Amino acid sequence: NDYYIHNIDECCWMKAAAMGDPEHTGGDALNVMGSLDKWTWPIMAQATGGKHFTKNRQGQPYVDQNFDNYSVEYTYADGTKLMHYGRTIEGCHNEFASYIHGTKGFGTFSKNGHWPAPSALYSGLTPNPKNETWKFPARETNPYQDEWEDLLDAIRNDKPYNEAERGALASQVCNMGRMAAHTGQRVMWDDALKADPLAPEIEKLVGLGGDSAPVKADADGFYPTPQPGITKKREY
């Protein structure tokens, strides 16, 4: 099905839909909380979301499985909270940023996508330059280029290098938030891990032609959409 190839953010089974990318990539680096010697992942997510429009401005119908906005509250074992807000609606305020609020001050994790951040800490609760206590001291390098250089260096010099587990667990955090919004339920870490697969037997998929895709459109070309509070065990 050519639709999947050109619209990988539209379907939950293909790429976690909009909550997977582009929305949640902004929070990936903040998903892990704790000290440097003891990282931890959130244990629970609760969320809201909604679909406001059924057609784009040209009158073409939206046939995807996404909500137009997502708001997720992640809770960690010690009570720490991580808030995610995402909206994909034309004409609205556009910001790709991550901020940190604490009892002792405010932090800019990134305010311009992933790069350049620029990261800084402030003694107050606002990013007032007069209260700046720290900022990244050097010129930021491109993280997309950095990760390729790290990988290629490991390959060329036979160094251990494997980010698969870290990437999978970060994606799991995204799944928790999306599941909570789509079902209208609180979702625990283990609940998300044990949830029914959105694409059963995906390992046997050899192509997207014909009827091989695990999620198919109805007679009108629309894909199944979430119904929070009604479909509680599955996302759609």
Rank of each mutant, 00 (worst) to 15 (best):
Y4I: 14
Y4E: 12
H6E: 09
N7L: 00
D9V: 13
E10P: 08
E10W: 10
E10V: 07
C11T: 14
C12A: 15
W13L: 01
M14K: 10
A16E: 02
G20S: 03
D21G: 04
D21A: 03
D21P: 02
P22F: 08
E23Y: 14
E23C: 14
E23I: 15
T25K: 13
G26S: 13
G26H: 12
G27L: 15
G34E: 05
G34C: 05
L36Y: 04
W39Q: 12
T40M: 15
P42D: 00
Q46H: 06
Q46V: 06
G49W: 04
K51G: 07
H52C: 11
N56G: 03
Q58L: 08
Y62H: 15
Q65N: 08
F67M: 01
D68T: 08
D68I: 06
Y70D: 00
V72I: 13
V72Q: 05
V72H: 07
G79W: 03
K81C: 10
K81Y: 07
H84C: 06
Y85P: 12
G86Y: 04
T88L: 09
E90S: 07
E90I: 04
H93F: 08
N94P: 06
E95L: 12
E95S: 12
F96T: 08
I100H: 12
I100C: 14
F106A: 03
F106S: 02
G107F: 03
S110L: 11
K111A: 15
G113L: 02
G113A: 04
P116V: 08
Y122E: 06
L125F: 12
T126W: 01
T126Y: 02
N128F: 00
N131T: 15
N131G: 09
F136H: 08
P137G: 07
A138H: 14
A138K: 12
R139K: 15
E140W: 06
N142V: 05
Y144H: 14
E149H: 05
D153T: 13
I155F: 13
R156Q: 09
K159C: 00
E163R: 13
E165D: 02
A168R: 02
L169V: 14
A170P: 14
S171W: 06
C174D: 14
M176V: 04
G177V: 07
A181N: 11
T183S: 03
T183P: 02
Q185S: 05
R186F: 10
W189G: 01
D190E: 09
A192K: 05
L193F: 08
D196G: 11
D196Q: 12
E201K: 09
I202M: 02
E203K: 05
L205Y: 06
L205K: 04
V206Y: 10
V206D: 10
G207K: 09
L208V: 11
L208A: 12
D211K: 10
A213Q: 08
A213L: 09
K216L: 12
A217V: 04
A219V: 01
A219W: 01
D220A: 11
G221T: 06
P224R: 02
Q227G: 03
